[in-house]
């Protein structure tokens, strides 16, 4: 499954989740104004980090698959509809591929692909618990606006926790419907939608009942909104400071 956590031991895995979150956000912002050469440099950097994380590169590439059709469309649009000097041999009457169009298509689509790949590498090297703990720490300043980062982290962590439950539930509802003679291979878009509607409403009502019981269980264990403590304490190490310093240097260099 794309975006799934790979429990390995690597320098990238060992980084503090806060550093990784900041890195992904910063790189995303910097990439938006990147030119073709700097995009190429970023890609080389990304491949190196991906190698250092010991996660299979094919898994990162697989995460790009679902978004590919969208990016192919984008590529074609940029290719044919950017004004500029037409390239020889690649123009057919009114449809022209320009030098600018080709550069634009490669840079823009390359940027977005790299963004998706970076996000996928992040979730592959950071466990859901680390992500929630990291987010909780980073969002603490939101307290000024009356938002509790603890409550947000709790919500995110419950969402993560319910994903496998969700899949199990969906399968059992599907089997229950099959057992009563539902045809799950209905063809046509209308049929598919009808099918999904049936599954979704049952799934939603089941999930609401479950969450009702979960609320009782949480309250019984003394849950209260607001500050709480955690098993995992985050602590910056030397490598974390190193990565933060490197990020600062890159950011300053790009800005100047």
């Amino acid at each position: 499954m794309p975006f799934q956590y790979y429990p390995l031991d690597s320098p990238v895995h060992r980084l503090d989740p806060r550093v990784k979150i900041i890195a992904v956000l910063l790189v995303s912002i910097l990439l938006l104004k990147a030119s073709l050469p700097s995009l190429a440099a970023a890609t080389v950097g990304f491949v190196f980090i991906s190698w250092a994380s010991r996660t299979p590169l094919t898994a990162v590439l697989k995460s790009l698959k679902p978004v590919l059709p969208f990016f192919i469309c984008l590529f074609i649009l940029y290719l044919f509809f950017t004004p500029g000097s037409p390239l020889p041999y690649l123009s057919f009457g009114p449809v022209q591929v320009t030098q600018e169009g080709l550069t634009m298509a490669i840079t823009q689509v390359g940027k977005f692909l790299l963004l998706v790949a970076a996000a996928s590498l992040f979730t592959m090297t950071t466990s859901p618990i680390e992500i929630t703990t990291g987010l909780e720490r980073l969002l603490r300043p939101l307290k000024v606006f009356g938002l509790s980062s603890h409550d947000l982290a709790m919500m995110i962590s419950l969402a993560f926790r319910f994903i496998p439950q969700f899949v199990i539930e969906l399968n059992s509802i599907r089997q229950a419907q099959q057992a009563r003679g539902a045809d799950l291979n209905e063809s046509g878009i209308a049929g598919k939608i009808r099918l999904m509607a049936g599954l979704a409403s049952t799934l939603a009502s089941n999930m609401f009942r479950r969450s009702d019981q979960l609320i009782d269980a949480m309250e019984a264990r003394g849950y209260h909104p607001g500050p709480r403590t955690y098993l995992n304490n985050l602590c910056f190490r030397r490598s974390d400071y190193g990565v933060l310093a490197a990020l600062t240097v890159i950011a300053v260099a790009v800005w100047l």
Binding site: L158, R161, L214, T229, Y230, N232
Partner: peptide, 23 residues
């Protein structure tokens, strides 16, 4: 419906976390 954590350890840590104990 009474499991809160994403791992066994973390689920056990939920109650003590509500009590505000140190890691």
């Amino acid at each position: 419906n009474q499991i809160v954590g994403m791992t066994v350890e973390e689920d056990v840590a939920f109650g003590p976390g509500n009590l505000g104990l140190s890691p």
